[in-house]
Design a binder for these strands. Structure first.
Lengths: 146, 146
DNA sequence: ATGAGTGCAAAGGCTTTGCATTAGG
DNA sequence: CCTAATGCAAAGCCTTTGCACTCAT
């Protein structure tokens, strides 16, 4: 998905929820795009000093609600955000239990689709209305094990 | 694993870290066993009124460190804890995005082992020292969709 | 005895919220 | 114009921590 497509998709998602695509929200999406992976609020504020903390929190909540960004919970105290999968592509996370940082990775299609089938079956058995799955690896990243 | 085996395993794990298996810790393990699934601190305190909040926090941290319990992060603000997989069996979580509650489920062996292989391969490629994986379904539980 | 474990209360720290101001449509 | 969005600062809330007391070895 190209940069301009992302912009339009986000705009559409926001409009659908009667929300405005303000300049602050554009800068926020831009920071997430620039980050290229899950970012903490602190990191976002560093990437774009014009953003204000409380607005970032509020806007991330809204953007998550409309499905434009996704929140990732790691083991540390900092929530991380990245562009939603619609805007990038389906992937998973390598979560470092030492520094808390998160990297993305993907599975081969075969494994992924097999997993998907199994998950839907399990969800159905539990009468659970499944919205998404999250598959993360917990361990120690190269930087920390060095 | 029988109840008495769990006790012994926890005792062993604690001893290995020069920690005592005090009565408070026994009651805590007992509450987790009784709960039969991931519990919030509040729920633990309700299940056993003799437990004190600060000790529960401290002991859960220690029990997690020695590998006797596991922490689960959901989308709400409450950490949940359950007995570690050594003491139960490998499983995954159905996380309700509405009420925050968590239920357990399992995958068939074939899918699980295939997934495991793929994950180790991905971790290796990233130079990531993998400790565990977590696979959760996010959605709405029967109780909340009713 | 002597250090680990506990309990109470206070402090920490990420996140949320109240309210006045600004800007989008 | 008029409501949504923003910014600042203060408040919230789960969790952690300091300190004195208790218990196990």
């Amino acid at each position: 998905m190209t940069a301009i497509d992302i912009e339009e998709e986000v705009a559409t998602l926001l409009r659908g929820a009667d929300q405005r695509y303000t300049s602050g929200r554009r800068r926020l999406i831009s920071a997430l795009k620039k980050g290229g992976g899950p970012l903490t609020i602190t990191k976002i504020l560093e990437l774009d000093g014009s953003l204000r903390q409380s607005s970032v929190y509020r806007n991330l909540t809204i953007l998550e609600e409309v499905g434009a960004v996704a929140r990732i919970d790691t083991r540390d105290d900092f929530a991380r955000y990245e562009l939603a999968e619609h805007l990038t592509e389906h992937h998973h996370h390598l979560i470092c239990t030492s520094c808390g940082d998160v990297a993305d990775f993907s599975l081969d299609n075969e494994t992924e689709s097999r997993l998907d089938t199994a998950l839907h079956k399990a969800a159905k058995a539990a009468g659970f209305d499944i919205a998404a799955h999250r598959l993360d690896l917990l361990g120690v990243c190269t930087k920390c094990s060095a």
